[in-house]
Design a protein around this nucleic acid. Structure first.
Lengths: 188, 188
DNA sequence: CCGCCAATAGACCGTTTGGTCTAGTAACAC
DNA sequence: GTGTTACTAGACCAAACGGTCTATTGGCGG
């Protein structure tokens, strides 16, 4: 029973949380190190390029978490709208747990830092993974590949915008209301 | 003919651009000062709280710019969809001019910095101004207040998400495709 | 026991940060 | 002229930054 997460994992998770709260440039290395309970030497052992490497790892980890939620939401969904709705409700719950303070978990920690294009590329990659995951479920529900991809993009675009608005207002309702915005009110 | 912008305006505009490119914490005061050609003393004369004040002024200024584009797009629009479409095309053009590098002009510079709640409140205010502007045009086009407000929110949520995706991909198409996503393909 | 290497530990460094403070200047009132 | 106010100008500072470097530890193969 090895329930202690590895040093590397503790770093990535602490970094993810802090970047989400304060942004890349707003978070100091010392802060991450303290939070993770890890000395500086270990950071540069696991991530030779330091902060930038850590940010990319954090982005990757976040994308995987999102995909896990997508899986949980769509695996048993009878149709596309149900999958989207479940996802939105799960994320609204997460939003409330986070006390409305954090950036959108998908994009929060990207687009900053000196190394602009590296981060942009990492964001694009994470985004594509997420959209691809959703697309697969759309196909499984009978949509053509093109239709599924389009639906997945619309879904993620709407989610991204909704999270941002929810954050400015500190109200998770916006997230729960997304399916009705995208697909119209439920017909009895 | 006083075509020289005031010291204050030069500061706000330089700050707006830099914050949009590198974020709040990513931008140094020196950088802003150099860009604006203004010494430090003047900054703290016009903005006693320094960087934070400047950021709020920049957010306000940006919101006004966005509302100007909304005005230009909706004033002569025959219906809601036309207004949204014109807005999206104008913003796509802006996106291309900015070389795809910048954050969403609506939200780019918010949500960072030590003073979390002040910035959040400023973002909420700017957001509301923009949604209110769009809502007014919706009412003018015959929608009830509630319907117009809802349409405006959906529009801005979609725009926000689209800009983010456009930025990760460095392609403005996503912006131009938004109306079709929201309102379906054009019927002949 | 030794040798080896991954990993830990944190002192240390040069740079840059946002912010303060004193001095100087231009315009107007009287 | 003098006084006053609004603004410009930039030297200066303590603190924090990301990153480097040396030393040490722990565990496994031999």
């Amino acid at each position: 029973m090895n329930d202690e997460p590895s040093t590397r994992d503790r770093l990535v998770q602490a970094a993810t949380r802090l970047f989400r709260q304060r942004g890349y440039d707003g978070t100091g290395l010392t802060e991450i190190l303290t939070e993770a309970g890890v000395p500086k030497g270990s950071l540069y052992h696991h991530f030779p390029d330091g902060k930038a490497d850590l940010a990319c790892a954090a982005a990757d980890w976040t994308a995987s978490e999102i995909i896990r939620v997508i899986d949980d939401s769509f695996r048993t969904a009878p149709d596309w709208r149900h999958g989207v709705t479940t996802f939105c409700y799960k994320m609204a719950k997460l939003f409330d747990i986070l006390e409305s303070a954090d950036a959108c978990p998908i994009f929060g920690l990207l687009f900053e830092g000196p190394d602009q294009d590296r981060f942009r590329a990492q964001a694009e990659h994470s985004f594509d993974r997420i959209i691809a995951a959703a697309t697969r479920y759309g196909e499984g529900l009978g949509l053509t590949h093109e239709a599924a991809h389009d639906a997945a993009e619309t879904f993620i675009i709407g989610f991204q915008g909704s999270w941002t608005l929810a954050r400015t207002r500190r109200k998770s309702d916006v997230l729960r209301g997304l399916p009705a915005r995208l697909y119209g009110p439920l017909t009895a």
